[in-house]
Amino acid sequence: MEKKSIYNWKNNLFGTKSILYCNDAVIGSLESIDWNLDAHVSIHKDKYRFINKGLFNPFTEIRNQNNELIGDIEYNSWKSKATISLINKKYTWSPKNRWMTAWQIEDELGEVVEIKSSSLSNGGKIESCENSELILSISLYLQKRTTLMFSMVALIPLLILILV
């Protein structure tokens, strides 16, 4: 059985910054601007930018610290899934349960990463079989994006009530 690495993250009050920990030591962060889906992630010495594109057929570009395109994420909103395409490998992001409180990233061999958020601690836990800063960065970004998208959907009825 493969050994999993355990990471935790905590979000700031407004959810614009997440700090990533391994054994209580800070190893990285995710920063975004308010309700923007773009983000900067740094883990150890690696830095990645996630740039959201498209409105009706959304996808996210993944760029390294030299601004080179190294992959993308294509979303299937109807199925709450995404396909992660890197230079030499593909992964799938999907809910692990029907309540969407846990998510997973899988390659063709099975689960690579499991992400569990916790609203009580304003953060969550990432369990990873793959020792990759890029996959860890993608995990952190996708949990942030998912939380933001759910928040936006939850606000629609409130906005309708205000505008009517």
Rank of each mutant, 00 (worst) to 15 (best):
K45W: 03
S119V: 14
L69Q: 12
A102S: 15
K116S: 11
F14N: 10
T83D: 13
F56E: 01
I160N: 12
F150I: 05
P95Y: 06
K10Q: 14
T83Q: 11
I33Y: 15
I62Y: 01
P58M: 11
D46W: 00
I70H: 00
C22S: 11
Y48W: 13
L161S: 12
Q65V: 04
N67S: 13
L155T: 06
I156P: 01
G15T: 11
Q65K: 14
N88Q: 12
D46H: 09
G110V: 10
S18C: 02
K17I: 07
E130C: 13
D46C: 04
I84R: 06
K89I: 05
P157I: 12
V113F: 05
T147Q: 15
N12V: 14
N52D: 07
F59K: 08
E130I: 15
Q104S: 12
G71S: 06
I162T: 13
G28S: 11
S137I: 02
A82M: 04
K45A: 04
D107A: 05
M149P: 00
Q104G: 09
Y141V: 10
A154R: 10
T147L: 14
R63H: 11
L69R: 09
I73V: 14
P58C: 07
F14S: 13
K79A: 13
L30G: 02
D107C: 04
T147I: 07
L159V: 01
L30F: 05
V113Y: 03
K10N: 13
F50D: 03
Q65M: 09
